[in-house]
Each structure stands twice: as structure tokens, then as C-alpha cells.
Design a protein around this nucleic acid. Structure first.
Lengths: 194, 194, 194, 194
DNA sequence: TATGAATGAGTGTTCATTCAT
DNA sequence: TATGAATGAACACTCATTCAT
């Protein structure tokens, strides 16, 4: 086993950078956040950012895509693991709200901002919305969800979850969304069930 | 009748500027749109923008606040003119969708614009969401809407409308939202009625 | 004799423009004064300035050269009209101070600012300083003034007059310079006489 | 001894910037000198100016205030160190002329700069004129200087020194002012002594 | 790997000047 | 002659990016 001298020497400052950038992007927006801001907040030199990302835009894209991928994966894994549509809807709402409360800043960044980044993402990846699209499609096919335009059902479910996150971010809802999850599921389910 | 020579001489180019700016703000975002972009698209000189607005930010703010005020006013006028809660919800959804289809670019700008720049609006003005807050409050008081946290109802109604606009903007819904309005109302109403 | 209809029709607004420009040039400097400023102060349209002067710089040059010419002429006429050197010095100082008090703004503009304009002027015209140069040259030749470098005498006389105008402009001298003229002459004369 | 590789790497370019700016400010005036001009003359990028000063105006103010402070300090130190009024006047003139010849461009900037931009200096700092005001006040009190309005004496002494600097700047005096200092003192002293 | 001074293209904004009326 | 909306070159300043150390 190799002896580690000065083990922190090459510990990357990447986590600091990501954290600082995320916070600033949420607070001020991506465009309005300067590389100087990020470097100062992460306590690294401005040039050091470029050890990790070729550009500021890539940093933002990394934050967005990696974390949205993770959210999508989690939703895929948990929601589609069960077959019952009502349970799927329940899990979807709960998973979203739990993740929101676990890291509001991150979810704010991912979900609230209809970032220009999203456009690029939507075309290439699995999106949390995709999970829901599949739930709706299969639920309608199975007769568990009401018929009609699936986008209407999508709008209700995704829209409710999204809007509650937004309103919570605005500080208008004082409780954790997790406490509203069951109620939200109940109401939404009333609307969309067959 | 007097002959008008070059009658447009002093017709202001304001409409051209507003239209060009709106389109670019939606396409690229406010920050990423340069005054040069706007001037070129509006076929005016860059300096001419400043005859109408003291800064680019003021132009964006004008576009946002004037039009959102108008939307809020319309919703106030139409929705609160009736007393029946179900009819209020119906009118709310219809009004939103009609306005969306009448000028999708404008509504895209207004509705997607959880722009940081325009955060201040929420704090200072009547927002389309306010109308709905009142409908919900009065509807719950009258026993027409289900009880529970009013924000859940808000999330369902506003979220559905908002999300359908977003999905339509993304080109995923091929039909006018007006054709989906009745169905949307039906589903939403199922969820929120007492 | 021609009948004059609407005699004010073509009354030029030149005096208003000159007065406004002079005031603003003194207050804010030539560069910092905009044509809009001048137009507003003179109550004419911005474009109207160009009926009278081909450029802002020409307006400044006009104000400078015409008035400095007039001052130089006056000094030439009054000062060199007498032969006695002491009387010449007395008249020089009195004339300068009288003119200063008659129109401090104008003199401030002409005399205080070592305008870039002055450089151009100095090379081409009679300058108030020239009068004094002649007085000194002739005074030394006549034995009325002390010998030595004539620029030292010039510095004393011109410098004293100039500096008293400056200090007066700064508001540090509360009395009209005309009241200080005799005393100034007496002191200066003590220094420069043979 | 360590070998220095590229020892100038982080030598700041501040002196180049200051020198270039000073020269251009004297030649063209502050307003007429562009940041591009300064950068080109100092052989730095335009942006580099802003590493040292937050604005062009601050650069000008720095150049003015730091150097005028230094001049004022020097005059305070040297002139007021002695008690004899005649000697004080002698030292004042000599110090000014020596400094002028040591760096004519700098003194030109300081001395001619009745810049509007720099008006605030007069109100807030020790000015070379202040030293002289004190010399005059104490000299009159001690009976070493003639009575009468002290501003007249100030005008003579300060005005002479100032004007000789100006005339020298204009290239009309071919010799160093230091060679004229004793003569200037002699003449001025004749005027102001009791 | 980390630094931060240096860069320079690009930004929002100003303003002297023009010209159709 | 007078107007003032329109122009666009030029300005001060910013900031993502580079690179010698």
C-alpha cells in the first residue's frame, strides 16, 4: 500500500465548486452568475474552474443533466417497479416531494427553472416527465385511468407536483411538501382514475 | 381630403420593437438577447430602443408587466363576474387557453417567465394566480370545493393550466388548447369539487 | 419700405443658444455638455443648433474666439492708447476686472479654463496676453520696467490678474474685483517698475 | 542565489498605465482620452485598466489626488519648516519650479487642472495654495508682509508661479524655470514685503 | 493540479449629427 | 427656418477564458 503524503494535495475541489455554482445559479440565474462569483464562493481560483469544466455553460449543463438524470433514474426505479397505477401515482408524488425537501435548492434548479438547458435535455434524455408519460399510457391501456387526451392527465399530475414545488419555493407553503403528499395524491387520483 | 405624404413618418416603431424583443426573449432568454439583436430584428437602430425605454431591462419589464397586468385584469373581470365556483373554474381555464392560442409567444413569455428578473412582479401586483386564490378561498368557504390545504387545490388547477401551456409550447400537443379546455375543466373539477 | 409680416418669424434664436451654451460649458465643461442640454436650455430643438453651427465644437469655438477677440480688442484699444507704462498696467488690470465683474460667466469661460481651445487660439490670434507682452517689451525698452527676463514680469502681472479671477470664481473673494483693482495695481507695480 | 525565470511575470503594469494615462490626459484632456487610448499607449489590454482602477474617472482622480497630495506635503514640509517669511516665499517658488522641471507633464496635469472633474479636490484636501495662504496670514501678522487684502498677495505669488509654469508648458520659455526662480522670488518679494 | 493577472471580444448605453417634414 | 425622431459609431466597462508560473 502506497504511503500517502499530503493526502489532500490532489483532493479535488469539485464538490465545493458544484455546491457554490448551484447555489448561485438558483439565486441569481445562470447568466447573471459570473465565474468570479463561483470561484469566490467555492474558494478556488477562477482558473481552477477550468480544470473541471471546459466552460461555464458546461458546468451548468453538468449540474443540470447529472442531477436530472439521477432524479429520472430514481423515479424510473421506484415508480415503474410496481404495476398498480394508483400506487405508481402515489410513489411519483411522494418521490418528487421527498427529493424536493431533501435538497430544495437542487430541485429548484432542476425543476422550477424552465431553463434553456431543459430544451436540450428534453430531446436527448429520460426526463422525470417521461416516467409519468409511461405511467399514463400504461394506466389508460389497463383501464385504470380515465380516457381522453393523455396530456390532460399529464398536465394534472405533473402540473400539480411542479406547481406545489414552485409555491413552496416562493415561501407560500410553510410545511414540508412531504406532509401534503398524501392529500395531493388523493385529490389528483380522484381526477385521473377511470 | 388632404393628401398624406409619407403618413408613417412619425409612426413610432414601438410595436416593431416590442414584437421583436418578445420573440427574442422567448427564444433566447432576456439576458442572452442583445440590444443589437433586438434592433436588427425590429429594423431600427440600436439607439432608437432608448427612445422608448431607458434600458433593456425596462423593455423586458414593460413587456412582462403590461401584458401580465392585462391578463390578470381579464381574469379578474371574467372569472369573478360570476358567483358559481364551477363556472369560475371553467372560465379560468378557458380564458387562459384562449389567450394562449391568441398569442402563444406572449403567453409563453408571461407564463414560463419565472424569470429571476421579474420576480419582483409577484411581490407587487395582481398575478393571474391571485384570481385563483380568491376562487379557491371563496369556493371552500361556500362548500363548493373540497376542504384541505388550499394550496393543493391551487396546485391542481394552476398547475394543470400552466403545464398544458408548457407542453403545448414544446410542440407536444398538436391541437389548440381551446379544444382541450372542456376536458381539462371536467377532469380538474372532478378533483377539486366538494 | 417693405412691410414686415410676422417680424419674429425669422428672429434667430442664436442669442438664446449662445447664452445657454456658455452657461452650461462653464458649469459642466464643454465635453460634458450635450447638445440636448443646450437645446433644452435654449428652448430650441436639438437640430436647430445646426442651423447656426456645423458642430458642437464650432459652437464652443465661436463662443471662445469671438469673445476673446473682443476682450483682446478692448485691451488693445484701451491699454495701448496711452504711452505711460504705469498707466498701461493700471488700465490692463482695471479693464480685466471690470470685464470679469460685468460677465463673470463669460470671463470664467474665456480666462479660467485652460481650454484645449486656447491652444488653437494662441497660435492664430491676438490674445489678451499679447497686449501685455507688448506693454512689457516697450516698458523695458523705455526703462520704465525693471530688466531681466520679461516672462517673469509677464507671470507677475498676468498671473496676478488671472489668479484673482480664479479665486473670485471659487467664491473665496466676496467683493467685486473692481474694488481690489487699485490695490492690485499698486502691489504689482511695486514689483515690476524699474 | 535563486534563478529568476521571467521575473517580471507578475510585475504589475501599473506604472505603464499611469504614465500613459498622464501623458494622454495632458495632451487631450481627461474626457477626450478613451480607455482604448490608454490601453494602447500602456501596451495592456483595455480590461487590465480595471484591475487597478474601478473606472477611468478613478484613474484620473488617483493621478490627480495622489500627486497633488505629494506636492502639498512637500510644500508643507519644506516651506513651513522655516519661520522667516521671505525664506518661505523663496522656498515655495523654488520647490514649485524644481518639481515642475522634474516632471513637467505631471505638473502640467496638476497645475493646469482646474478640471471640472477634479473640483472636489479643492474642497476636501490640502492644496498647494493652502500652504501659501498660511504663509501670507502669518507673514502679515508678523509684519513681514504688506497689509491689505491677503488675496491680492496670494494672487501675486501663486499667480506668478502658476503662470510661469503655464508659459513654460506652452514652450515660450526656453530655459528651465529653476534658472528663473531667484529672479522670480526677487520680483515677487519686492511686491509683497512690508 | 492550482493560480490569478491578463486578455479582448462583446455588452448596454450615449450622443453628435442628419434629414424628411 | 425649425423640428425631433432616427441613426450608428464610439464609449466605458464586463467577464469567460487563457496561460506562464
Amino acid at each position: 500500500m502506497a504511503i500517502k503524503i499530503n493526502p489532500d494535495k490532489y483532493d479535488t475541489k469539485l464538490p465545493d465548486i458544484l455546491e457554490a455554482a448551484l447555489k448561485l445559479f438558483v439565486e441569481k440565474g445562470i447568466e447573471a452568475t459570473t465565474t468570479k462569483d463561483i470561484a469566490r464562493a467555492a474558494k478556488v481560483a477562477e482558473g481552477s474552474l477550468y480544470r473541471h469544466f471546459p466552460s461555464k455553460e458546461d458546468l451548468a449543463w453538468h449540474l443540470f443533466s447529472v442531477n436530472l438524470d439521477a432524479l429520472s433514474e430514481a423515479l424510473y426505479g421506484r415508480v415503474l417497479a410496481v404495476r398498480d397505477t394508483q400506487e405508481r401515482v402515489r410513489l411519483y408524488v411522494h418521490e418528487c416531494f421527498e427529493r424536493y425537501e431533501a435538497d430544495p435548492t437542487l430541485l429548484h434548479f432542476l425543476v422550477l427553472a424552465e431553463h434553456r438547458e431543459l430544451k436540450r435535455y428534453r430531446e436527448s434524455r429520460n426526463h422525470p416527465g417521461r416516467v409519468l408519460e409511461q405511467v399514463i399510457q400504461e394506466g389508460q391501456a389497463a383501464g385504470a385511468l380515465r380516457g381522453g387526451d393523455p396530456w390532460v392527465l399529464f398536465g394534472i399530475i405533473f402540473g400539480s407536483v411542479h406547481r406545489l414545488c414552485v409555491v413552496r419555493s416562493w415561501g407560500l407553503i410553510g410545511r414540508p411538501l412531504t406532509e401534503l403528499a398524501d392529500e395531493t395524491v388523493a385529490v389528483v387520483w380522484t381526477a385521473v382514475r377511470a
